[in-house]
Lab assay of single mutants.
Amino acid sequence: KSAVKALFDYKAQREDELTFTKSAIIQNVEKQDGGWWRGDYGGKKQLWFPSNYVEEMI
């Protein structure tokens, strides 16, 4: 599983989504079709976030 870095702040709209700030590192990313991926951040595990808010880390 990979890690991504947030390009923008994102505030969860639902309880199954992540809230994060710009430059946050989201771990254990599971990529899905449809523009939403799952990952771990801030003590939350495998919640959804919009993939267009992040960049992949190499």
Rank of each mutant, 00 (worst) to 15 (best):
I58N: 13
R38L: 09
K22W: 06
E30Q: 14
G39W: 02
K1V: 13
K45H: 13
L18V: 01
L7V: 11
Y53D: 01
W36I: 02
R38Q: 08
F8W: 12
I25T: 05
S51Y: 07
I25Y: 07
A12Y: 02
K1P: 13
K45E: 12
N28R: 06
G35T: 08
K44S: 12
S23L: 11
R14M: 08
I25V: 12
I26A: 02
R38I: 08
Y41R: 03
E55L: 09
F49A: 01
G35K: 09
V29H: 01
K22R: 12
K5F: 09
V54W: 02
A3K: 14
S2Q: 12
I58C: 14
G34L: 06
M57S: 09
I58H: 13
K31C: 07
W48M: 08
I58G: 13
M57K: 06
Q46L: 05
Y10C: 06
K31S: 05
G42C: 12
L47A: 15
D33S: 13
E56A: 09
F49R: 02
M57P: 08
F20H: 01
K44N: 10
L7E: 04
Y10F: 07
Y10P: 00
Q13Y: 06
A6G: 05
T19F: 04
R14Q: 10
W48Q: 06
K1C: 15
D16Q: 08
V4I: 04
S23W: 13
K11N: 14
A3S: 15
L7Q: 07
Y10H: 04
G34N: 09
G42T: 04
W36C: 07
W37P: 00
G35S: 09
T21C: 15
K5N: 05
D40P: 00
G34A: 07
R38T: 07
Q32R: 14
L7W: 05
L7P: 03
T21L: 13
E55H: 08
A12K: 05
Y10L: 00
F20C: 04
D9R: 06
A24L: 04
K5P: 00
K11V: 15
S51W: 07
A24W: 03
I58A: 13
E15Q: 10
Q32E: 11
A6P: 05
Q32C: 15
K11Y: 14
V29I: 07
Q46G: 14
E55I: 13
E15V: 11
T21Y: 12
G35Y: 11
F20M: 02
M57W: 13
W36A: 03
G35D: 09
E55R: 08
G39Q: 00
A12E: 04
S51Q: 09
E30P: 00
L47S: 12
S2Y: 14
K22L: 07
W48P: 01
L7R: 10
P50Y: 03
D33N: 11
K5G: 00
K31A: 05
M57D: 09
E30R: 13
D9F: 04
S23T: 10
S2G: 12
Y41D: 00
G43C: 10
A6I: 03
V4E: 03
E15Y: 10
T21Q: 12
W48T: 04
V29E: 02
W37M: 06
D9N: 09
E30G: 09
V29K: 02
A24N: 07
W48D: 01
Y41T: 04
K44I: 05
I26D: 01
R14H: 11
S23M: 11
Q27I: 15
N52H: 13
E56W: 08
Q27Y: 15
L7N: 06
K1D: 10
S23G: 15
I26W: 00
